[in-house]
Amino acid sequence: MRLSILLFALYQLVWISSKTNRAFKKFISKAKVRFLIKTEDGKYARLFVFDQGRVSTATGPDHAFDAALVWKDPKIAFSVMLKKNQVAVFNAAAEGKLKIEGMSVFALWFDKATSHIL
């Protein structure tokens, strides 16, 4: 539940920033990226869609994506994502609690994009 709220709040922040944050707007202005964050069992999932400056979202795990962060369970996802810390993400991946499907370079892009707003 907490993860769902976190993902929803993150999307809200992304949407507002796409209208108001000059650096973020510039960063996403040419990008076409579909980035999914979900748990392995698919119970928690949110898609972030960036389309040359416009952002939108969808819930559910079964969307096409360029990259997906797949978390072993929602608690770990919540605690690591809240830290906003590359070491925590790296450790989660090293310990088998996180994997990236699709191209990880899009995950790096998403991380860089959100660094403008978090």
């Binding site: 991946a93 090293a94 088998g96 996180l98 990236i100 191209m103 990880s104 995950a107």
Partner: peptide
Amino acid sequence: LKSFKNAYSAFMTS
């Protein structure tokens, strides 16, 4: 070293 390899393998799943 093991962490490094595990992490990049997780990043390269697909």
